[in-house]
Simulated assay, not measured.
Amino acid sequence: MSAGPYMVESWEAGQSITYVANPMWWGTPPASDTVVTRFIGQDAQAQALQNGEIQAMDPQPSPDLLAQLEAIGDSISFEPQDQFTYEHWDFNFDGPFADPALREAFALCIPRQQMIDSLIAPLNPEAEVLNARFVFPFEPQYQEVVEASYADQSEQDIEAAAAILAENGAEGTELRLGHNANPRRAQEAALIVEACGPNGAGFDVQDIGNEDFFEAEGELATGAFDVAQFAWAGSALKSGSSSTFQTDGGNNNGNYSNPEVDELIAQLNAETDTDAQTQLVIDIETILWEDLATIPGFAFPGVVATAADAQGVEYNPSQAGLTWNANEWVRTAQ
Rank of each mutant, 00 (worst) to 15 (best):
S149Q: 10
S257L: 05
E188F: 11
Q55H: 14
L237T: 07
D309Q: 10
A266W: 06
M24L: 12
A121F: 06
A105Q: 08
G4W: 02
A98M: 06
D99E: 12
W329V: 00
E217W: 06
N131F: 06
I164G: 02
T173I: 12
D212T: 07
R331E: 04
N316M: 09
F225G: 00
G172I: 15
G73I: 09
D291T: 03
R331K: 04
P140A: 09
M115P: 03
S257R: 05
L177C: 04
G297D: 10
N251A: 07
L119V: 00
P96E: 13
E215Y: 09
E155L: 12
G41D: 15
M7E: 15
G209D: 01
L292P: 02
V304R: 01
Q60A: 13
Q153P: 00
L108M: 06
P301A: 04
E211Y: 10
L123D: 02
D90I: 08
D58W: 14
S118Q: 15
Q143T: 11
V36D: 03
P111A: 08
Q311I: 08
W89V: 02
S149T: 09
A161C: 10
G202I: 08
D157P: 08
G218Y: 11
I158F: 13
V193T: 06
P61Y: 06
A148R: 11
A121S: 12
Q141I: 11
G218L: 12
S318A: 09
D248M: 04
F225Q: 07
Y315R: 10
S243E: 15
E9F: 05
F39I: 08
W232M: 10
S118E: 15
A107M: 10
M7V: 13
I295K: 02
T34R: 14
I158A: 07
S62V: 10
Y150S: 01
Y315K: 06
I76T: 04
D275Y: 08
V303L: 13
A299C: 11
N182V: 15
D204T: 01
V227K: 01
R185N: 12
M24T: 06
F39N: 03
E9K: 14
I76E: 10
P29K: 15
P29F: 05
N252R: 04
A231Q: 12
A221S: 12
H88M: 15
L191N: 00
G321D: 12
A231R: 09
A276R: 12
I282H: 02
T28D: 10
I72D: 02
Q113H: 08
E167F: 02
Q47Y: 03
A270Q: 15
K238M: 04
Q156H: 12
W324S: 02
E260I: 05
